[in-house]
């Protein structure tokens, strides 16, 4: 008898399935399906993620491996122009490097930096925001003053993470101030839970929504800032060029009419950040009407 019963999926998989189904039935998913811009943004991001993970399989050449470069193949235009080769879809640069391959490899660096800077900002900002909002008093005043001071610097003067955290600290603090007087937090206090557990298990999950919205958009912002810093020559090391550094390399030869070396990496940054902003704006409008 028991052998005829369909094998139930293991427990973790089942709960995953259930939450996925719950997500599909939610208002967010419903609105997502009806929003052309949200779908477009998601497709762009998905394509980008696939490209970054599949990286080496999408290109014939490893642009960092000098042995694979052929100086005779340098300065080839994109394949649809005269003199272009099918092998190099978007053309080649000064050293015979495939522009498409450089973009694929550079995207990994750019995305990595964008994500790392965002995570760093979230970690610092959310922690300080939670602490400031939950404990209040002098601690709160000090943290918020530092945030004010930080905000009165132009972003170029300070490195990535040190600018990013302020937004989170302010948002999370505001949300924490609101949540900490709710009944469920009171109940947790009465039941004798230590403060750090109340903060992590009860307050944090309830202030997570605005955090996600800002974090989404910020990855795009950080990709742009990283590109700017790389262009100025104060970014990541030259051995592994990010998208910004590719633009810089192409700038040197732009005046000789070799536009593809710099234009395609820039177009690519624009497309990716545009996709992130599309989805970010959708999430902001859906999840956090107050931020509208």
């Amino acid at each position: 008898m028991a052998a005829n019963m369909p094998a139930a999926p293991p427990a973790p998989q089942r709960s995953l399935q259930r939450s996925w189904q719950r997500f599909l039935a939610s208002e967010l998913a419903h609105n997502w399906r009806r929003s052309a811009s949200a779908i477009a943004g998601s497709i762009i991001i998905l394509g980008f993620v696939v490209m970054v993970t599949a990286g080496p399989y999408l290109t014939a050449q490893n642009p960092y491996d000098v042995r694979q470069l052929d100086i005779m193949e340098a300065f080839k235009p994109p394949m649809w122009l005269e003199g272009g080769a099918f092998q190099y879809i978007l053309g080649t640069d000064q050293q015979g490097r495939d522009v498409w391959a450089s973009i694929v490899y550079g995207s990994r660096i750019s995305l990595f930096i964008g994500l790392a800077a965002m995570l760093g900002s979230v970690l610092i900002g959310a922690t300080l925001g939670l602490v400031a909002g939950f404990y209040g008093g002098r601690l709160d005043a000090v943290i918020m003053r530092i945030a004010d001071i930080q905000l009165s610097f132009p972003s170029v003067l300070i490195a990535l993470v040190s600018v990013g955290w302020v937004v989170y600290a302010r948002t999370v603090r505001g949300a924490t101030l609101r949540e900490k007087n709710r009944e469920y937090v009171q109940a947790a206090r009465v039941s004798g839970l230590p403060n750090h557990k109340i903060i992590l298990k009860h307050v944090l999950p309830n202030v997570l929504t605005p955090l996600i919205v800002i974090a989404t958009i910020q990855v795009g912002t950080f990709i742009l800032i990283e590109a700017s810093l790389s262009f100025l020559g104060v970014g990541v090391p030259i051995t592994q060029p990010s998208l910004g550094l590719l633009i810089k390399n192409g700038f040197d030869v732009l005046f000789s009419g070799l536009w593809w070396i710099s234009v395609f990496p820039g177009l690519f940054i624009m497309l990716v950040v545009f996709g992130i902003n599309l989805l970010g704006d959708f999430l902001r409008d859906e999840l956090n009407p107050r931020l509208k």
């Binding site: 811009s37 262009f231 009419g257 234009v263 820039g266 545009f274």
Partner: peptide, 25 residues
């Protein structure tokens, strides 16, 4: 609004290069 979002999404210095290429070169 779509145009404004594109304006926010593009690297400004890259736009300058494109302008140089089109209008100057």
């Amino acid at each position: 609004m779509a145009g404004s979002l594109i304006g926010i999404s593009l690297p400004g210095f890259w736009l300058g290069m494109v302008l140089i290429f089109i209008f100057a070169v």
